[in-house]
Write a protein that binds this DNA or RNA. Structure first.
Lengths: 205, 205
DNA sequence: CAAAAATCAGGGGTTTCCCCCTATATTTTT
DNA sequence: AAAAATATAGGGGGAAACCCCTGATTTTTG
């Protein structure tokens, strides 16, 4: 039973590792960034991967998506601070095995591992009650309305790229980028002022 | 040598605890919220308290302040994700003994503990290089360079007014506003990209 | 399969920001 | 008194953002 744990915060990584080990499991691989974690999943094919959602490079959600698409045998447990239903919903499309809030990890991780090992899904009990009190959703709610291509463009706008530069980066026409911009503004419900999208992206992305 | 550790994330708390213990120290108290942590400091008077800054109830900074005001013997080490100079500056007014970024905890905590036990202050080596990207003070410093008329214009830019609208509001020519804009950008040292002033004003004003 | 959605691409237009330059009146500093 | 800073204002121009409109291809979904 090989278990991989990935978290970009070293202390949390160590904490998770020693906690899982205290439950009697063997942690064979640890990783502090998403890209490395996925490579290890590819190479080592661990039975279980406990992944933080917020990581540099590739986040837990992206790894889960890749694992699902490539039909890898690794069962993914997402460990996160995010109580948002949106992330959970997204993750749930990719055969997610476990979803646990970091705050309740100590109470739930043991049960979760047992269930996941038996092939069952385990979702944090506290999720349903807490996802009502969500804080910074204004931006994330907006982002959810966007398609993948649109989100990519918002990301580049936040990096102060112009439509021309974005077009070059994505190998598409400047006109396409402009079209996306118009749609994004529409979807986000931004006021009809100049550069509101730039300001929005700069602030919330 | 009694050490107290407080962190609201159980996994990070455990990680920090086991790491500190692996360095040969004894952790006598742990706490997952600020209020409880301070009560334990009051009751147990540990030599050292390693506190997370972001905690519910009372944060690390508030605890540090109380410890300082009440002249408690506990030496406080703040463990944080925040690279901001502002927080460090505030903390430094209260006889802060250690300031470590979570990302570098593994490299620095051992040295930090040694120094703090010897009565010395230890500040994260990585702080100095990273605190250049401080937001609040940088903005305020920038504003101080501006004249009264320029500040007024920045204020209106932050309210999403265009140069034309600003001109009408201030009963001056649009060209004057544009001239001020150019000078403001110059004084603030903003990069030569479009709309940087708008983004700057929106964010920092 | 058919409908809907996403992605791509173009024409044409307006407004805004920002740049270059110059210039004048007033006030402040040296 | 001379120099510097401040606030004012103008000409002209380029780049970008955003608007309107249309259309095609591909992918997803019912």
């Amino acid at each position: 039973m090989k278990i991989l744990i990935a978290d970009d915060h070293p202390l949390t990584l160590m904490g998770t590792k020693s906690f899982v080990e205290s439950l009697g499991y063997v942690v064979e691989n640890v990783s502090s960034n998403g890209t490395d974690a996925f490579e290890q999943i590819l190479a080592q094919k661990p039975e279980i991967a406990i992944l933080d959602i917020n990581m540099p490079g590739m986040d837990g959600l992206e790894i889960l998506e890749k694992v699902f698409i490539q039909k890898l045998p690794t069962k993914v447990i997402l460990l996160t601070m995010h109580k948002e239903m949106s992330i959970f919903n997204k993750a749930n499309q990719y055969n997610l095995f476990g979803y646990i809030l970091k705050e309740h990890a100590q109470d739930e991780l043991e049960m979760c591992l047992k269930e996941v090992i038996n092939g069952n899904q385990y979702i944090s009990k506290n999720l349903s009650s807490e996802l009502t009190t969500d804080n910074h959703t204004e931006a994330q709610e907006g982002l959810e309305k966007l398609t993948f291509a649109e989100k990519k463009i918002v990301e580049l706008i936040a990096q102060h790229k112009t439509s021309k530069q974005i077009a070059e980066l994505l190998f598409i026409s400047e006109k396409t980028v402009e079209g996306h911009r118009t749609n994004i503004i529409q979807k986000l419900g931004l006021p009809k002022e100049k550069n509101t999208l730039l300001v929005w992206a700069s602030r919330y992305f």
